[in-house]
Design a binder for these strands. Structure first.
Lengths: 221, 221
DNA sequence: TTATTTTCTAGAATAATATTCTAGTAATTG
DNA sequence: CAATTACTAGAATATTATTCTAGAAAATAA
């Protein structure tokens, strides 16, 4: 049902059509993976659901595991962008330089991390479920390099946000990895169970509890 | 290299030989899955490594996913048995009935859960890695019924241990699922990263920190 | 513009793997 | 001891992933 002649879109971004198509394929694949599991979905299902050909799929992604890895990476990117927005909002809000102000700011930062997690998971349960369950597929697909670039930047942003506060002893004197697990661990643990249908009460219901617990766990005594 | 004639073992448990053989297969499968990933290991690899025939594998397990599910279940069983031992030890140790004594006991109980996790993961990293990464395969294999029996008993034991203390307001007035995530979440989060090689410092190094954090997160104020 | 190169699409052909099936052997039970 | 049930084996089959060849579309150079 397309027009016979398509107006030139040379003014638009080059490859925009292709990249949009790839994004579409990833969404379709996510759907299949969610419904049938990664092992249970065949290339043919993705081909049919996406309206592509086998050749195109392999041209764009390489193999099935790499499709799954691409889905994972896409999901993490989307979460990362939300997290950055939440942290930037904290940054923008508080402007003072006094000790009290700074203290309030770390707390907001820690809680922003929790809120970003809770909100993204609650709003994107399908992505979240996939991301939680399939991190290991990235390594299996050999897509680590591509991921680690994103991830390293991601973690670096996070840690660099908190480092100054840690230095001023506004956080417990613990390694950043440990702080990170204390902040996100409980929320992630609950999210896994909830997304798998093992817990009834929605994650978002405990938004404040997770934020408070996180701050309580890492604030300096 | 087996003896030509095997002495009768009719006095031993029936099917003991079979069940031991199945356990062996699961160990071999775990090894393969760890080295190649579940998707990357073929039935033939398991057949070869275990010295069985394809027919036997299918006879015992049904299909590949069910082998993986059985590995998962076996891992959880072994962890569960350790956790029970740790909780029983707390139970045995403190005998008094006074308020102080009881208070101390909850704390030991909460910490015992963390210790059981840290110790089992540290001592069984291969099992632990598999268990963390492949819970979802159980559902995919349709082995949920078998698992949920074990798991339900498992969670019930846990919650029934804590319920009396929660009633006496010695724990924060939160749902048990939430308490559970607050206790185990940070430790599990760190363990995932460590087992995947993303963190250097061994989980066990932070044993006390995780235990303290857990108690701090759930003790009544 | 037209020529040339690159990227993408298609689907048939092939290869790898999972699963089933048939037949036979050991173990258990009545 | 006979009958039944549990197990083993590996060839035959079915499913599915992946490769390959050829052509269409898009981008780029002339």
């Amino acid at each position: 049902m397309k027009e016979k002649t398509v107006v030139s879109n040379s003014a638009a971004k080059p490859q925009a059509k292709t990249s949009e198509k790839k994004r579409q394929i990833l969404l379709v694949a996510l759907q299949c993976f969610t419904e049938q599991g990664v092992a249970g979905t065949t290339i043919d299902m993705i081909r049919e659901a996406s309206g592509m050909s086998v050749g195109s799929l392999y041209h764009h992604f390489g193999n099935k595991d790499k499709i799954a890895a691409a889905v994972f990476i896409q999901g993490m990117r989307e979460f990362g962008s939300l997290l950055r927005r939440y942290l930037a909002a904290v940054e923008a809000e508080a402007v003072g330089e006094e000790k009290e102000e700074a203290n309030r700011k770390v707390e907001l930062g820690v809680k922003a991390v929790v809120y970003a997690n809770v909100d993204w998971i609650a709003d994107n349960p399908v992505w979240a479920r996939f991301v939680f369950q399939h991190r290991s597929i990235v390594a299996a697909a050999g897509a680590e390099v591509k991921l680690s670039g994103d991830m390293q930047r991601f973690y670096q942003q996070l840690t660099s946000w908190f480092k100054p506060y840690a230095k001023q002893n506004m956080l417990k004197p613990l390694p950043v990895e440990l702080l990170s697990s204390l902040i996100s661990g409980p929320c992630h643990d609950y999210a896994r169970h909830w997304l798998a249908g093992r817990y009834e009460t929605p994650l978002s219901e405990y938004r404040e509890q997770f934020a408070d617990a996180a701050w309580n766990a890492v604030k300096a005594v």
